[in-house]
Structures are given as structure tokens and as C-alpha cells.
């Protein structure tokens, strides 16, 4: 039995009277693509927010490789190998796409301010390596012709793809993606599916929040279903598809 890379243990969070998450527990094995689905308002994004320290949990803890991660400042997470993207991409609008992707890899550079300020060779070497890595990722995502465009000039779907690229530049072990396919057309969604599989092929574990059922069924190794803040199913994709409880939750028949 392999140890899970990410383990959530009894996560709860309420906003006013609304119980957004209610004792959510699950484990993600390394090398998996784990989808999280559920009707609107089921608590999917809240779950990512809690995992990445944006929203404090009322109760529970999450562990990355056995290390507790709730309560850490957000800027520490990339260093631990955890990156996320957002429903609405949070690229830096004034920087170019390439610069945004380079920024993702920034925390891997070791040379300090002084080395940069003095233009030492070690800093220049790292700068070049960072740029080369960004270009490689942009090629991988087929975004290289947009490398020089300001991020704000991209359509929303491509911004989200560029954000995936920025997250990849950080060399993550675990990638949390919040609806990466929203706003993509069918061929772009297919491309995203192959990107996700290639990412998994590189040994990166992926947690995917997604509405697009076809995408979820085609790429994921396991599916977690949330409804009204509770886990109502945690199984293989084809099992989830046949689960009457899941069908009822989606059709509102409860």
C-alpha cells in the first residue's frame, strides 16, 4: 500500500449558516489524476481554498507527504511542491506569458538579491535556465507563439492554460486545478486532456475540479463526489457514473 501524497482529514468549514465543507476526508495517491466533481455550491472550490490556505478550516487538517499544510503562509506551498490554478486565471496581467511562466519557477532559483544586484554569473545562469524552462513548457502547451504577449491579451481559456504552465514551471509534485476546461472549446479540451495525461506521465499528481464530465471520465483515475459539503462518493470513474446517489445529487432528487 503506497502512502497517499495528499491526505485530507475531517475538513470542515462554514460560512455563516452554510456548511460549505462537512468533515471531508480523502486521500490522493501519488501519480494519480484525482477528479473532484459535484453540483454547483457543493464546496469544491472551498475545498481547494482550504487546502491552499486561502480559507482557514474550522476543523480538520491536510497532509502533504505526511506534513501538515493547513496554517502555512501561501508562499511556502510552492516550495513544498504544491501549486494550484484558479477558476479565473490569476496571471500577472502586465507581464508577458513567458514572464508569468518564469515567475512560476522563481522559487527554485537559489541565488540571492545581492547576486542579482551585482549581476554575478551564477544569477545570470539561473536566469537563462529559468527562461529556457519556461520556453520548454510553453512549447509543451503549444503556447510558444504567445510567449511575448501580455497575459491580459489572451482569451480566458488560454489564460487558464498559461496558468497551468506557470504552475508546472514550479516543478510541483501536486497540482490542484480549478476548472481548467471552463471556456475551452472541444478541441482545446481534448488537448488539455492529453496535457493532463502527459503531466501525470512526468510523475506529477493532479487534483482536478471539473464540470466537463467527458474530460473527467477520460483522464481521471479516481473521482470524489461532493454534494452540499459532504463526500457522497469516492470511487473509480465508471462506478461513480453508475452510482444512484450521485445521479440523484446531480438531478436534485434527494
Amino acid at each position: 500500500m503506497t502512502e497517499p501524497l495528499l491526505r485530507a482529514d475531517g475538513l470542515s468549514r462554514s460560512f455563516g449558516g452554510v456548511q460549505a465543507l462537512s468533515e471531508v476526508s480523502f486521500a490522493v495517491l501519488p501519480g494519480q489524476i484525482r477528479a473532484i466533481i459535484g453540483p454547483n455550491g457543493a464546496g469544491k472550490t472551498t475545498l481547494l481554498d482550504v487546502l491552499t490556505g486561502f480559507t482557514p478550516a474550522d476543523a480538520g487538517q491536510a497532509y502533504l507527504d505526511g506534513q501538515p499544510i493547513l496554517g502555512l503562509p501561501p508562499h511556502r506551498l510552492p516550495g513544498m511542491g504544491l501549486m494550484r490554478t484558479f477558476q479565473t486565471a490569476r496571471l500577472i496581467p502586465t507581464l508577458t506569458v513567458r514572464e508569468n511562466v518564469m515567475l512560476g519557477g522563481h522559487h527554485l532559483t537559489r541565488s540571492r538579491f545581492l547576486a542579482h544586484g551585482l549581476g554575478l554569473p551564477v544569477a545570470r545562469r539561473e536566469e537563462r535556465a529559468l527562461r529556457a524552462r519556461a520556453d520548454e513548457i510553453l512549447r509543451f502547451l503549444e503556447l510558444e507563439r504567445l510567449a511575448e504577449s501580455p497575459a491580459a491579451a489572451l482569451p480566458a481559456g488560454l489564460q487558464r492554460l498559461a496558468e497551468v504552465g506557470r504552475a508546472l514551471a514550479a516543478g510541483p509534485r501536486l497540482l490542484l486545478l480549478d476548472e481548467p476546461a471552463a471556456g475551452l472549446n472541444d478541441s482545446e479540451t481534448l488537448e488539455l486532456a492529453s496535457v493532463l495525461k502527459a503531466v501525470r506521465g512526468k510523475g506529477v499528481t493532479v487534483v482536478l475540479i471539473e464540470h466537463n464530465v467527458n474530460l473527467v471520465m477520460s483522464v481521471s483515475d479516481a473521482v470524489l463526489v461532493l454534494s452540499a459539503g459532504m463526500v457522497i462518493a469516492d470511487a473509480l470513474p465508471e462506478q461513480v457514473q453508475r452510482d444512484p446517489v450521485v445521479q440523484a445529487a446531480y438531478l436534485g432528487d434527494r
Binding site: 491552499t52 503562509p73 501561501p74 508562499h75 511556502r76 506551498l77 510552492p78 516550495g79 494550484r84 490569476r90 496571471l91 500577472i92 496581467p93 502586465t94 507581464l95 514572464e99 518564469m102 515567475l103 512560476g104 522563481h106 522559487h107 532559483t109 541565488s111 538579491f113 542579482h116 544586484g117 549581476g119 544569477a123 539561473e126 536566469e127 529559468l130 506557470r166 514550479a170
Partner: peptide, 21 residues
């Protein structure tokens, strides 16, 4: 420089920059 990139990112969007470590 790489530091300049992070400085510009922080100036444009501190929250997003923080997410990038």
C-alpha cells in the same frame, strides 16, 4: 533579472505573486 521579475509581479498583483512563492 529574476528578482526584477518578482518585483514587477508583486507590484502588479501581490496576491498572485504570493501564490507563486
Amino acid at each position: 533579472t529574476d528578482i526584477g521579475l518578482t518585483l514587477r509581479a508583486t507590484a502588479a498583483k501581490p496576491d498572485a505573486a504570493r501564490l507563486m512563492g
